[in-house]
Simulated assay, not measured.
Amino acid sequence: MHHALPNGAEDYLKPALAHNRIDSGLSFVTEQTHPIELIGDKTIPKYAFVRNPYSRVLSAYLNKIEPYAEGVRGENDDNNYFYRVYTEVDAYHCNNLPLVSKVNFYCFLLWLTNVNNVHTRNEHWRSQVELLQTGSVDYTFIGKLENLDDDDAPTLLNYIGCDIDFPSQKKVSFAPTNATSKLEKYYTEQELKLVNALFLSDFEFFEYDLITDSLELKC
C-alpha cells in the first residue's frame, strides 16, 4: 500500500491548513452540487470524532473567550469575530451579573444557556449531536478524542486503508488549551449543572458520563 493522499494537502502536519479551505486540498460537502444526496448516500462511508462536553466547552472558552476577558487579546487582534462574540458575552455579564468583576466560565455558560442567537449557536460550542445531524446521517464510525491515540485513530485509519501513522500533537505543533487537565480549576457544581443541561443530548448519544459532584473531577 502506498502513502497516498487522495484528498488533502501533502503537508498534512501543517496546522495552519486545518482551517484553510483554499489551501487545505480538501473537498467539502457544502461545495458539492447535491450535498444532501451525498450525505444521504448509504454507500459512502462517513466518519466523525467527538469530544467530552466538559472539556470541549471549556476548551472553547479558554481559547475564544478568556484571552479577551484577561486582556491577553484585544479588539485589533487577528480574530475579530470572537472579539465581537466576547463583547456580547461581556454585555450579558454586565447586565445580569454586575457583582462579578469580569467574564468568567460561569458567565459564559449562563450566556449560552439564556441567549439564543447566531453567536450562541457557533460550531465551537453547539451540540455535537446537532452539528453531526446524528438523527439523519448514518455514520460508519464515530470516534472519541479521548481515545484518539490508543484506539480510535488506528481504527479509523484501518477503515480507510491508510498506512500512515496518526501524528502526535507534538509533530503537528498544535498549541493545546489543556482543558482536560483544568477541569477541576474551572468546574464547581454550578458549572456542571449548566453543562449537563446544555449538552445532555451529547452525553446521552455519545455515552459520556454525567458528573454532578466536582470532587469527581479530581485527578
Results as ranks from 00 to 15, higher is better:
147 N>V: 04
139 Y>A: 01
73 R>P: 01
160 I>A: 07
209 D>R: 13
147 N>R: 15
40 G>P: 12
190 Q>W: 05
120 T>W: 02
216 E>P: 00
187 Y>F: 13
133 Q>W: 07
101 S>F: 05
45 P>I: 09
203 F>N: 06
55 S>M: 11
89 V>D: 00
46 K>T: 10
163 D>A: 14
12 Y>I: 01
9 A>T: 05
166 F>R: 01
153 A>E: 10
44 I>F: 11
206 F>A: 14
78 D>K: 07
19 H>W: 06
175 A>W: 03
75 E>Y: 05
144 K>H: 12
43 T>P: 04
210 L>V: 08
73 R>D: 08
54 Y>P: 01
194 L>G: 03
153 A>T: 11
12 Y>C: 01
204 E>K: 12
170 K>I: 15
21 R>D: 07
21 R>K: 10
36 I>W: 08
59 S>D: 01
69 A>S: 15
141 F>A: 12
137 V>W: 09
89 V>E: 01
11 D>N: 07
211 I>T: 09
153 A>K: 06
205 F>G: 07
5 L>T: 13
211 I>C: 08
96 N>S: 00
109 L>D: 08
122 N>Y: 03
74 G>I: 06
67 P>E: 02
197 A>V: 09
97 L>H: 11
72 V>Y: 05
99 L>R: 13
210 L>S: 06
35 P>Q: 11
164 I>H: 12
52 N>W: 00
182 K>E: 09
82 F>I: 13
112 L>T: 00
164 I>G: 03
184 E>H: 03
119 H>G: 04
55 S>C: 06
15 P>C: 09
166 F>A: 06
152 D>T: 02
122 N>M: 12
113 T>F: 00
24 S>D: 12
4 A>K: 08
87 T>A: 05
82 F>C: 07
214 S>H: 08
141 F>L: 12
140 T>S: 12
181 S>G: 08
44 I>Y: 04
212 T>R: 14
68 Y>A: 01
24 S>H: 06
163 D>N: 13
35 P>C: 08
85 V>P: 02
47 Y>A: 13
206 F>V: 06
107 C>R: 03
